[in-house]
Every structure is written in structure tokens, then in C-alpha cells.
Amino acid sequence: MSDWREFGPDTLSPPLRAALVVFARHGYHGASIRMIAEEAGLSVPGLYHHYRSKQAILAAVVDTAMAEMLEHTGAAVEDAGSHPVARFENLVECLARFHMARRDQAFVASTEMRSMDPGVRAHHIAQRDSQQAMLEEAIRAGVDSGDFACEHPEDAARAISSLCVSISSWYRPDGPLTRDDVVARHLYFARGMVGAARAGGVADPSPSPS
């Protein structure tokens, strides 16, 4: 990966991209196979040729998003080398950028867990836990190095992940904050959550929305 900060066009197939649009607009239970087929420009049998059920479509949409997120965050960790603070900050930045670049995918993944069949949900949770573990390990490394003062790394990792996930529900490209503003603000929050030494006394780095 040339740059983990960059997210180009998604790699979804036309049927999956159509399903993403319909799921984001109507929710999983409000969507029908016919609606997805029409959005994709396919017949219902044509859509079933690609995916055997609406549940299989949801699974594919979410799995594609999670795989991309894990690929980028893994590259962000590798780019940081052995420095725990850089690893932590790269992870937070990558999560923030992912949830801005893939708003619909992230929104569907976070809101439709209740709609997933048990096997699909278990796979999604395993992917999510892998991501969570990367962040928790970075926090623990920062504590061990003396860069962070955090008594509860697991809780801090969960809170930071939730903060980044929420970006997909409110961020708009034409809003008052640029992507760099959002990253700077979330890094500021995240440093405070882990007791980073340089977070103390540092002003919020991004402008308030008007």
C-alpha cells in the first residue's frame, strides 16, 4: 500500500454498491431484493445469480469494508515502526480517515449488526475485535514506555474506537471541518483519553463549526 491515509474509489462490485445505497437509505429490513436489483440495473434473477440472499449481500458489503479498514490500519501500524506513540496516533488517524472516506459502509456495518445472522455477526465481531486489539496493544505499549498514563487501556481503546465510528454518522465533505481538521480534533481527544504527556494543556487544534 503506497499510502494508508489515502482511500480511493471503493472496490465494491455494482450489485454491492447498489445494495450499500439501498441499505444506507432504507435500512436492511426496509430494503428488498427488488429495490437492490433496480438500483443495480439488474433483474431479480440476475441479482440472485451473484448473491443467494439479501443476508449474503449484507455480509459481503460489511466484510469488504472491514477488510479494507484492517488493511489500512495494518499499514499504518507498520509505518509507525517500533514507536508506540506513532503507532497509536497512526491508528487513530487511519480510523478517522476511514470513517470519513467510507461513511456509508461504516454506517451500515455499525447499525445493521442486529440484522446479521449469527454466523455473519460472529465473523464481523471477530474482525472488529482484531481492530480493537491493535488499538489496545498500542495503548499498552505507550503505557509501558511511559508515554501514556492510562489505567484502563481496554476501556480507552473502546471509547476511541466508538468516537471514530461515530464520524460516519455526522461528517459531511461540504461541512465546516476539513478531513485534516477532523483528524486533528480526534487525535486531540484520543491523546487525552490515554493520558498522553503532550495532551496536557494543549488547546483544541481545529476550528469550531459555525
Rank of each mutant, 00 (worst) to 15 (best):
V92C: 08
G195I: 03
D181E: 11
L135M: 12
E154T: 05
G192A: 07
P173Q: 03
G175M: 05
A31T: 09
D79A: 15
S161H: 12
A56M: 07
A133T: 10
E154M: 03
P9K: 12
M193C: 08
N90G: 01
L20Y: 08
E71D: 14
G200A: 14
G201T: 03
E6D: 05
A24I: 00
R121Q: 12
I167L: 04
Y188P: 01
D117E: 15
L42P: 05
P173A: 02
I33Q: 05
E71G: 08
A109V: 03
C164W: 03
M193L: 15
S2Y: 06
S115D: 14
L177P: 04
L47Q: 10
L135R: 07
A31W: 06
G81F: 04
E112C: 14
G200K: 13
I57R: 03
A149P: 03
W4C: 01
F98Y: 10
S166H: 10
A80P: 07
Y48W: 05
W170D: 13
V120W: 13
A76C: 01
P14Y: 04
R17V: 03
P45V: 06
P173D: 11
R158W: 12
D174K: 05
R179C: 10
N90V: 00
Q105C: 04
R191H: 13
P84D: 03
V21P: 00
P207D: 12
T64P: 00
A156D: 06
D204G: 00
V194A: 00
A59S: 12
C150W: 13
R140G: 06
D10L: 08
G201V: 07
S110V: 08
A56F: 09
S32I: 10
T73D: 11
